[in-house]
């Protein structure tokens, strides 16, 4: 705010802001841009059982999409895997958005007292006091063939025999993801909702809008930034996941993360790098589309 001394440099640009930004820029350059470039470069390399061969080859990309132009025998591995991952991603996104929005709406508009609201909000975060892996694995004894849920169902006579679809299935994977990631939607949506001017809701009511119309024309448009941010979290996390899908899906459900992990473990780094580049491209595309729909920066 104070008047700065006139800049004496010939370029005529102040140097202080550049210096202030330099540490972050350097960190990002070193730990984000550089590894990303390295991944892209390695994806063009060749490899053998025991070594990486610096080269410019399209082998990794060609092998990745091998047989993908031929649909007579169904989808090729890569398309099949992406489809499987995208499908899970879509289901998880829909469910977490629904739950996240519902919980945030309840907290923001139905709880009158700030104290109660904050207390309930903290309750939502309580599961995060344990590790990600434990929250996921604790489902196993519940959902197993001889698990608590099946014992209950069989015991009460609701079903004749244990239900296999409860575990190592799409259901269990989605359940675990929803459990893990709903909060990532709840928080930004809640944040957006708390910033909505309450007079707008009153105005809507005075103008004769029903509850549904208020939600549709006032609340949802104003919480879009929160929804988009939450969606980005969920989509990025699910697209890259291989642990949750592996454990809850009994390793039987394909995911891109798993493919990359297998390739890494066989020292096929270039092939894994190529997969990573394609995955990154796809996720960036999804995010680009979402941010095109809503200008987050303007909305924030």
């Amino acid at each position: 705010m104070s008047s700065s001394p006139p800049d004496r440099r010939p370029m005529g640009r102040p140097v202080a802001p550049l210096l202030q930004a330099a540490p972050l820029a350097l960190v990002l350059l070193l730990f984000f841009v550089f590894p990303l470039l390295a991944t892209a470069v390695v994806s063009l390399w060749n490899y053998t059982e025991y070594s990486l061969v610096p080269d410019v080859t399209s082998r990794n990309y060609v092998e990745m999409f091998e047989g993908c132009s031929d649909f007579s025998e169904g989808l090729c591995t890569t398309f099949g895997t992406y489809l499987s991952t995208l499908r899970l991603c879509a289901i998880v996104w829909a469910v977490t958005t629904l739950f996240g929005f519902g919980i945030a709406y309840f907290l923001a508009f139905h709880i009158r007292s700030d104290t109660v609201r904050m207390a309930l909000f903290l309750v939502c975060t309580a599961p995060f006091l344990t590790s990600n892996v434990i929250r996921m694995i604790s489902w196993l004894p519940l959902l197993g063939r001889e698990g608590v849920v099946n014992q209950f169902l069989v015991g009460t006579g609701l079903v004749d025999q244990p239900q296999d679809w409860l575990l190592f299935s799409d259901f269990s994977v989605v359940l675990a993801f929803v459990h893990l990631y709903t909060l990532f939607v709840t928080v930004p949506v809640f944040n957006s909702m708390m910033r909505i001017d309450r007079r707008l809701l009153e105005a809507a009511q005075d103008a004769g809008a029903s509850g549904w119309q208020t939600l549709r024309h006032v609340v949802i448009p104003l919480t879009k930034p929160g929804l988009v941010i939450g969606s980005i979290f969920v989509i990025v996390l699910v697209m890259g996941d291989f642990v949750t899908i592996g454990v809850m899906g009994g390793q039987q459900i394909a995911s891109i993360g798993k493919v990359i992990q297998v390739q890494m473990s066989y020292l096929q780094f270039p092939a894994a790098a190529a997969q990573a580049v394609v995955l990154l491209g796809l996720v960036l595309l999804v995010i680009a589309v979402m941010t095109k729909l809503i200008d987050i920066r303007r909305e924030l």
Partner: peptide, 15 residues
């Protein structure tokens, strides 16, 4: 044929 085998295995997991 390790490379090929790993690719086929990934295909199997995806099937």
């Amino acid at each position: 044929e390790n490379d090929y085998m790993v690719r086929k295995w990934n295909e199997f997991i995806a099937a």
